[in-house]
Amino acid sequence: MLRVLDLSVLIGQKKVLSNINFSLKQGEIVGLVGKSGSGKSSLAKACANLLPKGAELSGKVESQGRIGIIFQDPSSALNPVLKIQTQFLESLQMGSPQLSKQEKKEEAVRLLQYVGIVEPYRVLSQYPHQLSGGTKQRILIALSLALKPTILIADEPTTALDTITQAKILDLFTKIWQDGISILLISHDLGVIAQLSERLLVIDAGKLIEEGPLQSILRKPQHPVTQELISAARSFYD
């Protein structure tokens, strides 16, 4: 699980996050919603300990187990000059160092099949530019699973994908959650989050403005920004 205690982050002159407090329990899916620029990505990176070097942190991030992370644009998240197999071997080195190279290869195949890729052997020998966006995103999810994480942070995982692929990826997240991994799902699109999360966190301008069970927030949003986000989503999905 993940516990964020009074976290504030300063990047350059800008206070990106202010006094963030929340926790993610074992086996939960929590959604984090907010407008662009509200600090969602910074929070994701802070939790995964991936903030840029110049960032100043105050407060604490406590976590148990490894954290896997997925970003929005699958094209820039895969190293263009390395084969998929190589990128897997790296992740598996972290998650299952005891395996031999051959065993790692088989584990990679298994993971690719788990995320729904049809020709795992072929994909392993290919380069990122040869694959479609949806496939790449699945690969990224598989890569993060290879770390054997307890928590998966997904920062706008479906934003760059078309609606059909989007739905399939969300199904995949459900499967991952059912297999016991906690998920922090981040999006600017409340519609996406509403399909999966149990709890909801709303962030605006670096501060957590609302928190609670998904349904109760949807029914009775307190903060005006939350209301904005809900009506934006509603008009689309109604």
Binding site: A48, I69, F71, E90, M94, L147
Partner: peptide, 11 residues
């Protein structure tokens, strides 16, 4: 690029 972050996240 994001893949640098991913590499770091792999430890």
């Amino acid at each position: 690029q994001d893949y640098i972050l991913i590499a770091r996240s792999k430890g």
